[in-house]
Structures are given as C-alpha cells and as structure tokens.
C-alpha cells in the first residue's frame, strides 16, 4: 500500500505531503509522462491524475479546458492506464491516484479495478460517487488492493464525516471552499478549525485542496493538514508555457510550494 507508506514516512520526517494534480492527456498523451516526471522532480509525494470527462461539473473553467484539450487529443481511460503503466516502470514508490467522474469508469466496465491495479494505480477518487451510490465499486477497489478516496466539504456534518470515513481509505480529500476547483478565496480560519475535528473523526490523513494557488496559501494549509493538493494553478502553468518548456516550468513552480510547506513544518 504505497499511499499508507508515503504518509507514514512523511510523518516520521515531520513533513506535509504535496499532492499535485494534472489532467492526463493535457495537452496531449505524449507530454503527460514528462509532466509526471516534472512533478516528482518538483517534490510531489503523491500524484493525482485527472481522467478527462466531457462534463466535469465539480471543476472550474481551468480543469474543464484541460479536459477539453485532452479529449480533443484522443485521451481515454485506457490511455490514462497506459500512462500510469509507463510511470510505474520508472517510479516504484510514488503513489498515483486517479481522479475523475463516474461515467468513463462505468463505460470501461468491470475490468477496470484489475486493469488499474495492474497498471500501478494506488487509489481512485470518483467525484460524483458519494459512498451511498458506489458500494459495489468500493468493494471492487478494496478487493483489488486500491484505496477508494472520498471528498468531505465545509458543509459536511459530523455524521456525514463518519459515513464517508467508513467507506474510504488512504486519505480524505477535504474540499476547502464552497465552489469548484480553481475558484475564489480560502477561509483559512475555517479550514484550521475543521481539519483537527475531521481528522479525529476519520482517523486517516486529511489532504486539503480547491483554492490553493501559491506558496503562501500552501504554507498555511500545511500547518494544519497532512497534505496539500494543488491542481488548477499547475494546469495554468502548462497552459501558458510553450510545449517544450512546460515540464521545466512545472518543476520550478512546484519547488516554490515544496519549499514553503517544508519551512512551515520545520518551524512547528
């Protein structure tokens, strides 16, 4: 279980996990593996790899654009698993979590769990699968030795946190604001209050994402959470770079985040 091992190692080192997100196949399939290498070089502990979907309802315009580019370039869930396989051949330890929507996974069929496991996937987060609608899927993930990862939100009640924790493993992804990915402003006080409560209920590491855009916001989150998830801002970096320079710029950007969250932890 690479995800558990990663969090155990980080705990002994007194560090916070850095979890970057990119959409697989954005801008094309060939660039995704170089970008994943760039994420590792920039200090990624776990990589969240987005499975593109035509109707990404929970995402903002940045990730929607990434999905549109990836689909236009022909990316599919099968293609995503091929990329993970290549990544896994080079990197034995960095966990990969697929993040996406239910329909492409269901269209893939019942072979998904085994194929994903074989490719080297460690966890799967399906945004539009609340625990009550995906009992079978969760069972299949566990049977194949992968972590079903779930979201919690500022609006989640204590009872809801318990329900979600009972279904999920690996880590909890706390959505730090009411809204979509890449949106608005984070309420740090709210996050600071909620995370310790949630951690106590769920009994597993808590990662925080949505709305983290720079070193300063990442550092404030790192002070309270086990992991910082950053997505839209990296995709903007890819979007705004000439193709050949994108990996280098992604590494440089991610290093600024890595440095900021490590500094916080050292001070603690």
């Amino acid at each position: 279980m690479r995800i558990q091992k990663t969090f155990e190692r980080l705990k002994t080192e007194g560090r916070c996990a850095l979890i970057p997100f990119i959409t697989a196949g954005d801008p094309d399939a060939e660039l995704t593996l170089p970008l994943m290498r760039a994420l590792v070089a920039g200090g990624a502990d776990i990589i969240e790899l987005g499975v593109p979907f035509s109707d990404p309802m929970a995402d903002g315009p940045t990730i929607q654009r990434a999905c549109e580019r990836a689909l236009k370039a022909g990316m599919s869930l099968r293609g995503v698993l091929d990329i993970v396989k290549s990544f896994r051949a080079e990197f034995a330890d960095t966990p990969v979590v697929l993040m996406g929507y239910a329909n492409p996974v269901e269209a893939y069929g019942s072979a998904f769990a085994q194929d994903a496991k074989t490719a080297g996937v460690d966890g799967v987060l399906i945004v539009d699968y609340p625990p009550e609608e995906c009992g079978e899927f969760t069972k299949m993930m566990r049977a194949a030795g992968m972590d079903p990862i779930f979201l919690l939100a500022p609006t989640s009640s204590e009872e809801r946190c318990r329900e979600v924790a009972a279904s999920g493993s690996g880590y909890i992804y706390y959505v730090s604001l009411k809204g979509v990915t890449g949106a608005g402003h984070l309420d740090f006080d709210e996050v600071g209050r909620r995370i310790p409560e949630i951690r106590q209920i769920v009994g597993m590491p808590v990662g925080v994402g949505f709305g983290i855009r720079d070193a300063a916001s990442a550092a404030r989150i790192a002070a309270v959470a086990e992991a910082v998830v950053i997505g839209s801002r990296i995709i903007e970096e890819i979007e705004n770079s000439p193709r050949a320079e994108a990996p280098g710029r992604v590494t440089a950007f991610l290093r600024t985040i890595r440095t900021a969250i490590d500094t916080v932890r050292e001070r603690k």
Partner: peptide, 20 residues
C-alpha cells in the same frame, strides 16, 4: 427513499452538494 427508479436515478453529485 434514496431516489432510485429500479437501477436509475439516485444522487451522483460531489460531496459539496450532498448536504444541500
């Protein structure tokens, strides 16, 4: 009670909307 018509319907939304 959970909005299913046989295998159809249900609540397939992100966690942020579940309480609403």
């Amino acid at each position: 009670v959970r909005g299913h018509f046989g295998p159809y319907g249900g609540s397939f939304v992100a966690e942020t909307l579940m309480p609403a």
